[in-house]
């Protein structure tokens, strides 16, 4: 059996009275491309945010490479408010901030592009190489970390070459066209040297041609860097093309999962996407 890279165990995220993600369990194995799909507002990005530490889930556990990285159960006011369907809460509480989770090897991109606006393309990627730095304030200020700095710059440039933006490296990040900004986000995520890459709607706003290219690109970097990819996507063509397995959620609940062909024909999925036909 393939090594399990990411495993969600009954993750529930509740905001006030709204259960955005309800008892979601899934796994991603090494070398796979797994897609998470669902209609708008189904809770896909919330699920991502629970994995990357932006939100602490109300209940449930997340394991990365077998280690428990996030675990929580309803606390304080949530004890009474709790409305999730899962009632067996984990015993431990483990909380990790996003930066620590990135250091463990999970990198992500954002649905609404979040680049460092005032900085150049190159600097955007360079910042992502900092997490492996060993310098302290004084060695950094007086450039005693010269070698390390050179290495970071080389690495950042390599990543830009991988996504084909090396010739635009001195442009301001926000001056790039939309599709290239998405690629820059991926380059930035790759620069953290991840093992698991989370992509949040990488094809949003792209035309079919660009989407096709993106599909090949994602498979390409997956093979080149030995990555495992977990993505949220709306473009069905892309999902069906590149993913090994697909999870479908609606209103925070898992409604189907399997290989793309299975999921495509699942009546629940069709209902969720197209609505119920009224007789």
């Amino acid at each position: 059996m393939a090594e399990r890279v990411l495993e969600l165990d009954r993750v529930t995220m509740q905001f006030g009275g709204v259960v955005a993600v309800d008892s979601l369990s899934m796994r991603v194995d090494r070398g796979e491309i797994v897609a998470l799909i669902g209609p708008n507002g189904a809770g896909k990005t919330t699920a991502f945010n629970c994995i990357t530490g932006v939100y602490t889930p109300t209940s449930g556990q997340v394991r990365y490479l077998g280690n428990l990285i996030i675990s929580n159960r309803p606390q304080g006011r949530m004890k009474e408010l709790y409305a999730g369907s899962d009632k067996a809460f984990p015993a431990e509480t483990v909380v990790n901030t996003p930066d620590r989770i990135t250091k463990m090897g999970i990198a992500r991109t954002f649905q609404n592009i979040r680049l460092f606006k005032t900085q150049t393309v190159f600097e955007n990627v360079l910042i992502a190489t900092h997490l492996h730095k060993t310098s302290n304030l004084f060695t950094a200020a007086f450039r005693l970390n010269y070698r390390e700095e050179q290495q970071m710059r080389r690495h950042a440039l390599e990543m830009l070459e991988v996504v084909g933006l090396a010739d635009l490296k001195d442009e301001k990040a926000t001056s790039l066209p939309y599709g290239k900004q998405r690629r820059l986000e991926i380059a930035r995520a790759l620069a953290t040297k991840p093992q698991l890459l989370l992509l949040d709607e990488p094809a949003a706003g792209m035309n079919p041609q660009e989407t096709d290219d993106l599909g090949r690109f994602i498979t390409g970097i997956k093979n080149q860097f030995g990555l495992t990819v977990f993505l949220i996507e709306h473009h069905m063509d892309l999902v069906m093309d590149i993913s090994d397995r697909v999870y479908v959620i609606d209103f925070g609940k898992l409604i189907a999962h399997g290989v793309p062909e299975e999921v495509q024909d699942n009546p629940d999925v069709i209902t969720a996407y197209l609505g119920v036909e009224e007789e």
């Binding site: 932006v54 996003p98 930066d99 620590r100 990135t102 680049l115 460092f116 910042i127 992502a128």
Partner: peptide
């Protein structure tokens, strides 16, 4: 948010 996601504490 992005800074934190890039591993900056």
């Amino acid at each position: 948010v992005a800074a934190e996601a890039m591993g900056i504490n």
